[in-house]
Amino acid sequence: GETRETADDMREGAPRDTGALAESVQEEIDAGGLTGRAVATARHATFVEHGTEDTPEQPFAQPAAERARRRFPRRVKKETGVSLRKLAR
């Protein structure tokens, strides 16, 4: 679903030095399965995303979130259409 796609986008966009940042990206889905979030658990994730005094930012989470935001209307339209077709049967 969308959470997995967002996590994949984060992994793809994460800068690669050791690979630890990309490997730390996880999906967290709520118990009902309706909502979820993608998170990077590496200690240095925030420093990479926002930069530091000595290191420029290398955003990977925000661009992934923006891609998810752009996908959302298409996904809702598709799922709504599928549900309406099922009701019409």
Rank of each mutant, 00 (worst) to 15 (best):
E23M: 07
K78E: 15
I29W: 09
A88N: 11
T46Q: 10
R75Y: 04
T52P: 00
D54Y: 12
D54T: 11
E2D: 14
A68E: 09
A20I: 15
F72K: 05
T46K: 07
F60H: 03
R4P: 00
F47L: 12
F72Y: 12
R71I: 05
Q26N: 07
Q62T: 10
A42S: 05
H44I: 04
A64K: 02
Q26A: 06
K77M: 13
A7C: 02
A45Q: 02
E53K: 07
G32W: 06
K77H: 11
G32R: 08
R43V: 14
E57L: 08
R67I: 13
R69G: 13
K78M: 11
A31E: 15
E2H: 10
P59D: 10
A20T: 15
R16F: 14
A64C: 02
A88M: 13
A20Y: 14
A61M: 15
R37A: 08
G1P: 13
F47C: 04
T6R: 03
R37F: 10
G36M: 04
A20L: 15
T41L: 12
E79T: 11
A38M: 03
G1T: 15
T55R: 01
V82N: 10
R67Q: 07
T35M: 08
V76Q: 06
R85N: 03
Q26G: 04
T46E: 14
D54H: 10
A65R: 05
R75P: 05
T52H: 02
T35A: 10
T3D: 01
F60A: 07
G51A: 08
T41S: 12
E49H: 02
V25W: 00
E5S: 12
V25G: 06
S24H: 00
V48F: 02
R70Y: 09
D8R: 11
D30I: 00
R37C: 04
G13Y: 03
A64T: 07
G1N: 13
Q58I: 06
R67S: 01
A31H: 09
A22F: 08
A31F: 12
A38E: 02
R89F: 08
G13W: 01
D9C: 08
A42V: 10
V39K: 04
E27D: 04
A65F: 15
P56T: 02
A31Q: 11
D30L: 00
F47W: 13
D54F: 14
E23G: 10
A14G: 06
R89N: 09
E12M: 11
A68M: 09
P15I: 00
Q26K: 10
A42N: 05
E53Q: 10
G1H: 13
T35D: 12
R11L: 04
R70K: 08
Q62K: 08
R11S: 04
E79A: 14
F72P: 03
L87Y: 11
D9H: 13
E49K: 01
A40G: 02
L84H: 05
A7R: 01
R71S: 05
P73I: 05
E2T: 14
A65H: 10
R16H: 12
P63L: 14
T18Y: 03
D17N: 03
L87A: 12
R43Y: 14
K77G: 09
I29C: 07
